[in-house]
Design a protein around this nucleic acid. Structure first.
Lengths: 187, 187, 187, 187
DNA sequence: AATGAATGAGACTTCATTCAT
DNA sequence: TATGAATGAAGTCTCATTCAT
């Protein structure tokens, strides 16, 4: 990939996360990235597109991070791993995570970007669908199930960050949060 | 209360929700509210303050709506009612609900506003704390429990809106969502 | 005279002097004067007129203060008294004095106000003219002479204020400053 | 130096002088300078800073103009030259001169600007100090002496402009004005 | 006469975007 | 391809003035 493009994306993620995308000027991003003002527009033809690409970049990073290299045998263990990895990602990459939340409900994303970002998660959706059709879990619409998982892991991430949890304590917290979910959702 | 102030607040809520607070000019709000440009600043001395007050207004509206007039006997029934009312509110007031999510992670709110908004929910927090200390529910930090509830109800609201649920269907959905939660959390 | 009118004038003098007339809103003047916003415009139909009236008020105050009740016999003693009184006025009424300087070169005064203010000093000009025609002083255009006097007294006032002179020290300073002038200008 | 910057400074000096800095919009300055609205702010990050820089520019121009290329032998001749040059400058550059007076007492200048502007005149102050310590002049505080000189030359400039003096007549006027001063101040 | 809420023109300033170098 | 000065539309906010009470 292109180096300058990556610099700009990273600068944007950092500044967007800290100050809000809506009040981060492109000029500041360029400066933070160590490139000229106009260079940014050689790589991203408008700020709208930059925002979209930042969102997609984050979603890609997340998807790569949480998908297990190889799927285990049981649905529960696969789901537990996804659950675990998502929380770890959220804790380890606070800027990315914060920005993800920020953009999700901001009315700043184009429809195209949302669709594209969803596509990245189709593989993960597949795992859930499989578990559902195998009746490993209470029958819920797949879309609702995923929202539910995301919602509960978000709560877990926020709480872990609030208490600056690390290592064993964090693992314990993840375990417990999954346990609460699994108790309610398993068949 | 003051009529013009309310007009402005309502106009702001509507436009913020539809277009994003970050790209709703104060001039448009004033026009939509049927007042002059400068009048807005007689009531809200800056856009920042308007945003803060909008957020507080929404939280107040929500708190009023979900708190049961009289608390029932059992913790479960009280919690079930809160759960129910929150989802109803989210479905009935989509603009308010959407804006609530938008502002929460936007970096647009002042710290003062966040604190003030939290104070509005202290009564509701009290209900949870009571249930917890009475061991009606698995021992979780109260802050995490509330995040968890909010997260799951948010998921339920999103899903209900996605499928434009109403009446019996909506009630059924609410019931099921609570059931999943209660299963996982009850002692 | 009218009490409210005087309150407004005094408030204006104070605020104009401290912050500059150009950035003192009429609303602040009204508040400082303890009257309503609109009341100010009952007495002064525009800010321009208020500024003009403030200037005239100051000039009147100054003229009243410096003109000796009864003129002495010698031109020198009369002039010495004017000189003395002007400096005393400038030191005792720093707000008035400061504002006088501020307005003089500000392009904020209407031509009418300047003319009116000059009329107030015609009596004093008469004294100078008399001394000139009696050849008590080197032949200079009367207008230049008055400028010269004002200029030197201004310098004396600034210096006295800089060193916070009072009583004997101030009197000594005034004496010396007049002496320098008189040495240069007497015939 | 930078061409656009100079254009803006010159436009500002002209418009400030004619209409007062307080009621010259930045938009008018930009237009008069032949640049876009925003360009002005590339060179002067706020109107306050533009005003400050205008003041400093004028003081620099004045200092350059009045300081003699080489100092003569006698203190009197050096002082006479400064006196002469200042008056000539004031008459030849009426816009600059008018604005200098306007800004001096306007409460529009930042303290930094005043300090910076004073530094420009340190060389000239040195000349006066030398004359003082050599007892060529009555013992007066240096600060007062400079105020006195400025005050009298200001009077001379105003009078010269009032009568639209030129060439011999102007030179004669300057000579006389210095003579009045020197008579009063020499030892 | 006194009030003060309402007005809206206009001020300063920001910033996404362009384009000549 | 990279630059960064220039642009000007558009945003937030101020404030002299009006007018119904």
């Amino acid at each position: 990939m292109n180096k300058k493009r990556a610099q700009i994306l990273n600068a944007a993620i950092e500044l967007f996360s800290l100050n809000g995308a809506w009040n981060t000027p492109t000029a500041k991003i360029a400066k933070h990235a160590g490139v000229a003002n106009g260079t940014l527009f050689n790589y991203f033809s408008s700020k709208q597109i930059l925002v979209d690409e930042v969102y997609i970049e984050i979603k890609k990073d997340l998807a790569e991070f949480i998908v297990p290299a190889s799927l285990g045998k049981s649905f529960e263990s696969n789901l537990r791993l996804l659950w675990h990895n998502y929380i770890i990602w959220g804790v380890r990459k606070p800027l990315h995570y914060n920005l993800l939340l920020q953009l999700r409900n901001s009315e700043m994303l184009s429809e195209e970007a949302k669709v594209k970002a969803d596509e990245i998660f189709q593989g993960i959706m597949g795992i859930l669908e499989k578990g559902m059709s195998d009746k490993k879990i209470v029958p819920l619409p797949i879309k609702y199930l995923s929202e539910l998982i995301m919602a509960q892991t978000d709560a877990a991430i926020n709480f872990a960050k609030l208490h600056q949890m690390e290592k064993e304590k964090l693992e314990e917290h993840i375990k417990r949060s999954f346990s609460v979910f699994w108790h309610g959702a398993k068949t």
